[in-house]
Design a protein around this nucleic acid. Structure first.
Lengths: 237, 237
DNA sequence: CGCATGCTTTGATCGGCGTCAATGCCGGCC
DNA sequence: GGCCGGCATTGACGCCGATCAAAGCATGCG
């Protein structure tokens, strides 16, 4: 049974809701709905008028667009605590699709806009986060524009490890040695995300494995054996 | 003599100020300062605490970061009407430098934050614009990840033409035939922006010229001879 | 169990873009 | 005017990653 009450919510302290007091939160709870998505389910479609805004409680989603040549291009990922939606806007440009089982806290767009009006701190936090997300996307731009295939793959794994793992070991001194997690993306999706081909991604991952930097325990499992070397590999121009 | 009064401001109807009535605007005028920048002047430095927020009145700026290998990477451009700054945040990640003569309307950050508090419509517009800018950056990501050098250069010129030219011919049916403008960037800066080398940019531009799609009247001038072909070239995978 | 299907890995070859190098063009300064 | 330094163009060559091709390896179904 999943958390339908904020007191049970795993991202109470990380999501936009962290800008609200318990009392404020109690007032808006009835406005939101819990929603579960299976892998592959779409929350929003490219070109839709954005009907909903949501907080990610658990799972990972991809933000993607389909080019006219048919290939999908992934432009970002959403992790627990992240916000999805486009308040005060008519359309939005990308598909949002679940990569894993996902739990969301969903608000109709107009309701969410009213909430922003009632809770200035939340609106400020959303603005600040969006600006930060913009900087993040721009950082990626540099990586996509300049980095070699090896650096892109290493950077992706490094980023993913930091996003997925420290939910437990509260972000202390970097990443624990031997951190293990499962990639929420297939090789093909990683290739889309990084602007590479499946073959190149596969080759680079085997290379990282052979170098002893990561372990590949079959399937989608990843073990970060040497976090420092992984981070370093991400920055070899 | 440049416009120091909002009634003379060239972007009154396009900037954040368009969310304000004339009366509201009159109230905040004394809080802002006009500022002029010469080519190469920096408004903000990477890692600074962001002291100011500003609207671009005229000119073009670049948003860039310097990689540890010393090369500069340009991640975005700012045009008249655009907003610069990072309210409610401690640091910001990029340099902002003038590419041409630039006129700005500058507010100290704390003053600007107070303004946002007093003018909800402006805050909403800023949020909406930031979300739109995020989508824009993500669209670029696709281009950077997948497009060929030819498509990147064509796309850049197409985008630049649409940003610089229609300030006159109010964005009617696309771009007028024979639109002429001067690039605010050197070949090297274009190369940085697109993640290419100077040589490749130069070659692709000569190719576009030889194909009769653009004219290159020397220096930084560009004539868009065949806008449709330019847009098409931007999308050849 | 045996086969089919889809994902991943590995190998061989090709082409686009980066690199290195030389030349051309233009404005500034003596 | 003539020299000089910065930027742009053009050419020759090599390397990285895409492409084409084939062989593991899982999972599911008859």
């Amino acid at each position: 049974m999943l958390a339908h009450r904020c007191s049970d919510c795993g991202v109470r302290d990380r999501s936009l809701c962290s800008s609200l007091t318990d009392e404020e939160l109690a007032a808006i709870v009835p406005l939101g709905q819990h929603r579960h998505m299976a892998r592959g389910d779409a929350l929003l479609h490219e070109g839709d008028s954005p009907l909903v805004c949501a907080n990610v409680q658990a799972g990972v989603l991809k933000i993607a667009s389909v080019t006219r040549s048919g290939a999908e291009s992934i432009v970002g990922l959403l992790y627990p605590g992240d916000f999805v939606g486009h308040p005060f806007a008519g359309t939005h440009e990308f598909d949002v699709v679940a990569l894993t089982e996902v739990d969301l806290c969903v608000f109709p767009r107009l309701v969410f806009e009213r909430m922003l009006g009632d809770h200035r701190r939340m609106e400020q936090m959303l603005l600040s986060r969006t600006l930060a997300e913009l900087d993040r996307a721009r950082g990626w731009l540099v990586q996509m524009a300049r980095a070699t295939a090896a650096a892109k793959v290493a950077g992706f794994l490094d980023d993913m490890a930091q996003r997925l793992v420290p939910s437990d070991c509260q972000r202390g001194l970097g990443l624990g040695i031997g951190a293990r997690f499962d990639l929420p993306l297939s090789r093909g999706e990683i290739a889309d995300l990084l602007g590479l081909t499946i073959e190149t991604v596969s080759r680079q991952m085997t290379r990282l494995g052979a170098a002893g930097i990561i372990g590949l325990p079959g399937g989608r499992g990843i073990i970060v054996v040497n976090p420092a070397a992984l981070a370093a590999a991400a920055q070899d121009s």
